[in-house]
């Protein structure tokens, strides 16, 4: 792990982008690390591109600036790759996790550290809805090892407590599947 891990998540309004960043921070905190998560709201509208950020460190995190040079980039909605510059600030070391079965983008051809997770497929199968934010975190835990699967599950239990046991159980199963895949 780097001194400061900076995770930037791209998705669309209504996909739980902000929740995903919060779950990462909660899980990292449960693992005994310092963590921070915050949203970057654009226009509050379903479908609008949204970013959220999470930071993980062994030291106290004080900065509030947005994440310009992510160490991990999570793309919840791959259609965002077709427009806009969501790859801004990435380096050869940036780990990129994409909700897709495989690479079909020319702009990713020469990129290193790519990880494809069929999150939509898993979400439809396990949760019954195209809500990929928790699913893709299973891939995040496996690929980056920045949070443990146990802490991620515990984070979901805490965060989704009010949504009921069934929702919690479904999300945890979906995360496990994405982790094992």
């Amino acid at each position: 792990m780097n001194n400061l891990e900076q995770i930037r998540i791209h998705g669309r309004g209504g996909q739980g982008v902000v929740t995903a960043a919060e779950l990462i921070a909660i899980a990292a905190f449960y693992d005994g690390l310092e963590a921070q998560a915050f949203p970057n709201f654009g226009v509050e509208r379903t479908g609008a591109p949204i970013q959220a950020y999470a930071r993980i460190s062994k030291k106290k995190i004080t900065t509030r600036e947005q994440i310009y040079e992510p160490t991990v980039l999570i793309i919840q909605d791959s259609s965002l790759l077709d427009s806009g510059n969501i790859l801004a600030g990435i380096s050869d070391k940036t780990k990129i996790i994409i909700n897709a079965k495989e690479n079909r983008w020319d702009k990713l051809k020469n990129k290193k550290n790519l990880y494809f997770s069929p999150a939509t497929e898993i979400a439809l199968e396990m949760i019954g809805k195209n809500i990929v934010n928790t699913v893709i975190l299973g891939a995040f835990a496996k690929y980056t090892k920045l949070v443990s699967l146990a802490s991620l599950k515990k984070a979901i239990e805490t965060k989704f407590k009010d949504k009921g046991e069934e929702i919690v159980a479904k999300n945890i199963k979906a995360i496990e599947k994405a982790f094992l895949k």
Partner: peptide, 8 residues
């Protein structure tokens, strides 16, 4: 947002 909506 910066503080009200941040987890820490």
């Amino acid at each position: 947002f910066i503080l009200t909506h941040s987890y820490e």
